[in-house]
């Protein structure tokens, strides 16, 4: 019955197992930071995710308060990072909408805002 005793050990191992890692691509952080105000207009928006991304199926758009696109279109994806360049913008609130496919074939999406101005 030694094998059976192993079964009882498994839940105990979970008790001691703690981790800070994740799975599926969720936003880890961004630059400009989520909800933050920056003084100078950024040249690009960069997002870092918790998982590796599929470039062909990962997109990000940035719009101004009027809903007009201010990004240049094609996002650059490398590993867990996705960036998109911005056209010259002025002050105001900008909305970032992202939709990504992680390498494990799961789609996630989200959005946040940042502000430009003094």
């Amino acid at each position: 019955m030694r094998l059976l005793s192993l079964i009882a050990v498994i839940p105990l191992l979970f008790l001691f197992a703690t981790g800070e890692v994740g799975a599926h691509a969720f936003l880890d952080h961004a630059e400009p930071r989520v909800g933050n105000k920056v003084a100078a207009p950024p040249r690009e928006v960069t997002l870092w995710f918790t998982q590796k991304l599929e470039p062909a199926f990962s997109t990000v758009t940035v719009t101004n308060a009027a809903g007009e696109r201010v990004d240049t279109g094609k996002a650059r994806v490398s590993g867990t990072q996705m960036a998109v360049s911005l056209r010259p913008v002025g002050g105001g609130t900008y909305h970032v909408n992202w939709r990504v496919l992680s390498v494990d074939t799961h789609t996630t999406n989200g959005n946040f805002t940042f502000q430009v101005g003094q």
């Binding site: 498994i10 191992l13 008790l15 197992a17 799975a23």
Partner: peptide
């Protein structure tokens, strides 16, 4: 299975 399962569970579940 037990050894690899514990590693997978630690990564994908993380805590009790």
């Amino acid at each position: 299975l037990i050894l690899s399962g514990i590693i997978n569970a630690w990564i994908l579940v993380g805590s009790f």
